[in-house]
């Protein structure tokens, strides 16, 4: 990390606090590599922890093979989750966001750190329980127009997460092939399987452990892991009713509104 990375992290934080979307001319950098992106993200996390925020866990992005190929990546990407990003199920005031989107997630809670390079069995054994989630994305960049380095610097657009109330032990589930449905305003918009997450959500956890090791972080007991998008993300303007369901994991409802 350099003072440049520090400065760029402050720039993104100021945009987040003021609710400003950064356009093409609002970038203090000329270009951001993947390494730069992770360095800026780490600076941002350090700043927020210094402000008294608590690290709740991690999130994965670009976990579908199709998305990785599209982005010319050989591995998914990762961001951090703060406890303050936890949003309860039910009504959601969207005035706190700029252009929020929602997508279903399979969420893991860790029993212990699986180590820096876990195999499938080691990663599986590190999972205490599994629940359904909704991730709320809200990029600091106008129109979600960003480079790979930029989305990494922006904590992979992380803004919030909703956890379902039905936690299950992983061995009680067909974790690698859970049906997942999403309806918006009563219309089914997505019918997918957790197989879309790198063939199996445990593979996302394996990849996350490696990514964190490469940047000097590690997983810890009690942390949450959002294993990555399974479907397209759907916009959340006021007045939307979103229902997400997963096989054996119940459902989550979210109704968006403005004001108190």
């Amino acid at each position: 990390m350099t003072t440049e990375h520090e400065g760029w992290a402050r720039h993104l934080e100021a945009a987040r606090r003021s609710g400003t979307l950064l356009g093409a001319d609002d970038r203090p950098w000329t270009s951001l590599s993947v390494g730069d992106g992770y360095a800026v993200q780490s600076c941002g996390l350090a700043h927020r922890l210094a402000e008294g925020e608590r690290l709740a866990g991690w999130k994965m992005g670009f976990t579908s093979l199709a998305k990785m190929r599209q982005m010319n990546l050989d591995a998914p990407i990762a961001g951090y989750l703060l406890a303050s990003m936890d949003v309860p199920e039910g009504e959601l005031d969207v005035t706190a966001y700029q252009h929020p989107k929602a997508e279903p997630e399979i969420v893991l809670r860790l029993k212990h750190d699986p180590g820096p390079t876990p195999d499938f069995l080691e990663a599986s054994r590190a999972i205490e329980s599994v629940c359904l989630g909704i991730e709320i994305l809200d990029s600091r960049f106008a129109g979600y127009q960003f480079s790979l380095g930029e989305v990494l610097a922006d904590d992979t657009s992380a803004a919030g997460y909703v956890l379902g109330s039905r936690w299950r032990a992983p061995d009680a589930l067909d974790l690698g092939n859970l049906g997942i449905l999403m309806s918006v305003d009563g219309v089914l918009v997505e019918a997918a399987s957790s197989a879309a997450i790198m063939d199996h959500p445990v593979r996302a956890l394996m990849a996350l452990a490696r990514l964190l090791d490469a940047r000097g972080d590690q997983l810890a007991a009690g942390q949450l892991v959002l294993t990555g998008g399974i479907t397209a993300a759907h916009p959340l303007p006021p007045g939307r009713h979103v229902v997400v369901e997963a096989q054996d994991l119940g459902s989550i409802m979210l109704s968006t509104r403005t004001g108190a």
């Binding site: 019918a191 997918a192 197989a195 879309a196």
Partner: peptide, 27 residues
Amino acid sequence: LDMRLMGMKLTRNGEVAASGAGAACLG
């Protein structure tokens, strides 16, 4: 069988080539 919420995974030559769920068929 919860044939609406059941997951579907299709592998072709060892790679997951398609996935979905029961509801993809007319709900």
